[in-house]
Simulated scan of single mutants.
Amino acid sequence: MAASRSDFAALLRTWRDRLSPADAGFTATGGRRAPGLRREELAQLAGLSVDYVLRLEQARAKNPSAQVVGALARALQLARAERDQLYRSAGLLPPQDGTVDTHVPPGIQRLVSRLGDVPIGVFAADWTLVWWNTMWSALHGDPAAVPAAERNLARALFGNGAASASMLPVRSERGPDAFAASIVADLKDAVSRYPTDARLDRLVRELRETSGAFAHHWAARTTAAPHTTDAKTIRHPQVGDILLDCDVLIVPGADLRMVTYTAATGSTEAGKLDLLRVTGGHVATVATTHP
């Protein structure tokens, strides 16, 4: 196991040095001692502490979880074979066929990072958020502030944990139930295609037991259908209500969905997006007395 930890540490350092900051969505500045990512940048992308990344790279941290290794693989923009190598070096089996794949191809990560003017989130087949850009964080709040296990749209819509608490109010022009019904239909479809995925099974069982709305939609004879453009109003604490076109794009060759939000050039809504881009979505004044 010690040799394995050493291999894992060496791979982390090698692949961090290889990844261009620009490809990861960071602005390259002077004063870098190496061309690759800084350790704190990798930590930020993977949703880990800098100290933990340091201990992993020094082979002092033992037995990283599959969730941690998966987050690092995505942050490092590894190809599938490299991802599997990283899992094995950590003493773990790579993700198996027949389970929901959370691997985001490097090209998709670069695309999301470079389209910095557009809020983009990438979701797996079970609607787990697996990648996002800075504009997504500015519009919806930083997903890194939510525990990784809670970064799931179905949990945000129907659960009562951190995902639900962090979700901003969103109103769809298709009505309050249409979007929720479509997410449940997607999960039913995912269950039929990934019957052995334990995480997906646990998600569905939990929501059926704890959410009457989810159980109602699950019992309905609704089948998954292609997502079409939807107009959504998001109530943002800094810019107020912002009405945006929401599109769901399927990633070719991967069971992933890219969710994008756009506004017409020169519109009031585009101006609000510009403000979020400049401020990062941070509220200037905190006010909040609750009854």
Rank of each mutant, 00 (worst) to 15 (best):
N133L: 07
A264L: 14
L78H: 12
P169V: 05
R221N: 12
L249H: 12
V69F: 08
E82G: 05
R205F: 05
D274R: 14
K62Q: 15
V283C: 13
A79R: 15
Q238F: 08
R33Y: 10
D17G: 14
R202S: 11
T260H: 12
A263S: 11
G116V: 01
A2C: 03
D230P: 00
A145P: 06
I183F: 04
V146F: 04
S89M: 00
R18C: 05
V100W: 02
L12D: 01
D241G: 09
T228G: 06
F123E: 01
G141K: 02
A79N: 13
A138S: 02
A75T: 10
I108F: 12
L273E: 10
V130W: 02
L276S: 05
T210H: 04
A144F: 10
G212K: 05
S172A: 14
R205A: 09
L37V: 02
A145K: 15
V118Q: 07
A46S: 14
A225N: 10
G161P: 03
V259C: 01
H290P: 09
K188Y: 09
E206I: 00
G280K: 10
P169F: 09
H227S: 10
W136F: 12
N152Q: 11
P176H: 13
Y261P: 00
A22D: 15
T228F: 04
G159V: 01
W131M: 04
L157Q: 05
L54P: 01
H140F: 12
R235Y: 14
G212R: 08
D126W: 00
V283Y: 15
P147V: 08
L139R: 01
E209P: 01
R202E: 11
A3F: 11
G30F: 08
P35V: 09
A34N: 13
A154G: 09
A263W: 10
L54R: 10
P21Y: 13
V259S: 02
D245R: 05
I120Y: 00
A125I: 03
L244N: 00
